[in-house]
Nucleic acid binder design. Structure first.
Lengths: 151, 151
DNA sequence: CGCTTGTCAACAATGATTGTTGAAAAACAA
DNA sequence: TTGTTTTTCAACAATCATTGTTGACAAGCG
């Protein structure tokens, strides 16, 4: 994702208007590695602008996705997640327990399909989703446990 | 997925009751390669039993998934898709246009993560989703076109 | 055959996301 | 700066997939 200033430029040059709300969202997304949901972005933005509406957040996220400045991901966690990292190709680790997402930076084989197997499909992209348990959900806190553990 | 008769056995031995509705759903799923949504299963089942409710379909699909007789997939098409093929491991081709899903039977590298990259994540499984255009959406019918084409 | 318990179907409810609308603010030109 | 046009904002209400609730009913078991 570009910087807030660059995004402001980009939005203007695309005929979109740049409002305080949008710049707030730009800042919130900047460097966010948590793959936030729209709700999470809204919560973070609300800390700066109490009046910002969830609808506005959705709208701006869609705009950013349309301009390919963020990626919108459906990782099976029940809500769309947004990823500001669109510069280096990567895959995702998803925690089955808490739904947290981490980028997996290890490069993977090209994942091209033997044409014989594609059977007429024209394949554009491939994503790998690794599912498992994040460090936090993997083991209960040895002491100072602060929530229920396991199933 | 097992045969309807085997599923009847399995359900009984698990303390679940087997009703005409469930057997109807068993039959509908049998050999279905379209990765149907719950709605699609309901539509197919309704052809045999007009009164079957969508809720019952959801319930039975969840039961089957719990017994690992079908897989429930979130492939980003807006609804959960169900896959009766749980015998041979495979991945999926998803059409961006119409949402149709096809199994990809080509075996893939084990997709294990270099432990250094997992960063504490305990990885249980990996899925690959290939996105592109299915043969039908790829090219308009040369003649006898029967629906609107393209965007 | 009768009892117990799970299941059915018809609701209503949820949660994520999108549509609508009048008011307000951004961009642009003079 | 001011006026004009167009987009965006925020507060609704609506939608879609999915799940919760409940009383009637049927499956399984003795």
């Amino acid at each position: 994702m570009k910087t807030p200033d660059e995004l402001t430029e980009l939005f203007r040059s695309n005929g979109r208007k740049v409002t305080a709300q949008r710049q707030c969202i730009f800042r919130v997304l900047q460097g966010d590695v948590t793959h936030p949901s729209a709700e999470a972005v809204h919560a973070a933005a609300s800390r700066e602008m109490e009046t910002i509406s969830l609808k506005t957040v959705y709208q701006t996220l869609h705009d950013l996705a349309e301009l390919a400045e963020i990626a919108s991901l459906d990782l099976g966690t029940g809500m769309t997640r947004f990823d500001p990292n669109v510069n280096d190709p990567h895959h995702h680790l998803v925690c089955r327990q808490c739904g947290s997402v981490r980028d997996l930076v290890a490069p993977f084989p090209e994942l091209t399909i033997p044409d014989s197997a594609a059977l007429g499909f024209e394949v554009g992209s491939a994503e790998i989703v690794f599912r498992g348990l994040c460090p936090d959900c993997r083991a209960p806190q040895p002491r100072r446990a602060r929530a229920k553990v396991g199933s």
